[in-house]
Design a protein around this nucleic acid. Structure first.
Lengths: 213, 213
DNA sequence: GTCTATATGGCGATAGAC
DNA sequence: GTCTATCGCCATATAGAC
């Protein structure tokens, strides 16, 4: 016997709609700038219902954050844990991360907010994602040595890599205006080019490092 | 005749105190997260006095923003407008920008906030600071060609450069935990090292570019 | 589960005494 | 210029009907 249809039609995935709306609004306006009303509007429901599902703003934000990062992180860190040549790691990382950022250009701002507020939780998420620096960093060092590069701290390399990937996304509004006549298509092509440019740039820099004694 | 001392002792530089306090609070909590009360507390005065000097929160934020960027930008863009070898430009830029960020680690977050909200004003400030991309970009191309590098878009180079400099600052809380056992002194040394590492990295990558036909 | 109505608190902003 | 007091608004959060 199927239960009688109720007056209060149960939208099957209200929770999902809220999560998506909240992610969008939080990324656009920031945690403080976004109001529960904004989120409810975006989801096409009313405010109390948001509270019904997530009790309060903090818990909602946390849910989004864990949900989003939990999905993305494993794919990213896996690249560094895999047993593949170091140049491949960089290629895969740039490709993967660029695609993620193209879909979610506001993700960095979202993360930056939490960096100053809740760094420990972020670190936990990364570690839960599978990253173990006590393995990864020595492994990178070893791989560099095998390429004939003896004196390079892999942490500089990682900082270079991530910085090069992220920056054009966070600086897009000004960079696009200053260097691309504010043409979005041209800037999209630029971002696409970087999938090749960044790994090539790193590869050539590493070639140079081989000559250092 | 000196005027009689009043009951209401005039603090000579209340305005300055407010500006400093506001800069600190805004950078720490963000524009939306910071309250006028927070700023008044930090300045050691009461809320209405902040309004007396700056009327409202927006105007206060704008004052800080213009003040801060107006001081920093000219020094930065000057490096790109000067007639010095390209490798020197990179060295100077990294040195200068790193020093600025060491003093104001929250500056990037402060700027990021305005990037999505007010990109046009930011662009104006940069241009007022003296940057003219219609001169700078062709100039960089020319200098690259003189080094024997024919097919490199200088915009990739700039994106690489700035990204590498900024990232370790914005990601400090997590990077320091993940790669430096959360030791601030070790991380400071790392940041200091990057003044040499980044220009060297770029230089070697450019050496590689020379071999491309 | 979903909605209307409402309580509660905080924040920005101003008026006005001194 | 500096402070106290206060107004009005908006946002979070809950109570309770359906």
């Amino acid at each position: 016997m199927k239960p009688e249809p109720e007056n209060y039609k149960k939208e099957p995935d209200t929770e999902k709609k809220i999560l998506e709306a909240a992610a969008k609004v939080f990324m656009l306006k920031g945690k403080d700038g976004a109001s529960m009303q904004d989120i409810a509007d975006e989801a096409g429901i009313n405010r109390p219902l948001v509270h019904y599902y997530f009790r309060n703003k903090d818990k909602l934000f946390d849910a989004i954050f864990n949900n989003l990062l939990g999905k993305i992180m494993p794919g990213i860190v896996a690249i560094f844990m895999q047993d593949i040549p170091i140049t491949k790691k960089f290629e895969f990382f740039v490709e993967k991360y660029t695609e993620v950022l193209k879909e979610m250009p506001f993700l960095p701002f979202f993360i930056f907010q939490e960096i100053s507020l809740n760094p420990d939780r972020l670190v936990s998420l990364i570690e839960q994602g599978g990253l173990d620096t006590s393995v990864t960093l020595p492994d990178l060092s070893k791989r560099l040595e095998e390429l004939g590069i003896k004196y390079m701290d892999p942490r500089h390399l990682i900082a270079n890599l991530i910085g090069m990937v992220i920056f054009p996304f966070v600086a897009r509004p000004i960079f696009q205006r200053l260097g691309f006549k504010n043409d979005p298509e041209a800037y999209d092509r630029f971002l696409e080019e970087r999938k090749r440019e960044i790994p090539r740039f790193i590869k050539m820099a590493l070639e140079g490092e081989k000559n250092i004694e």
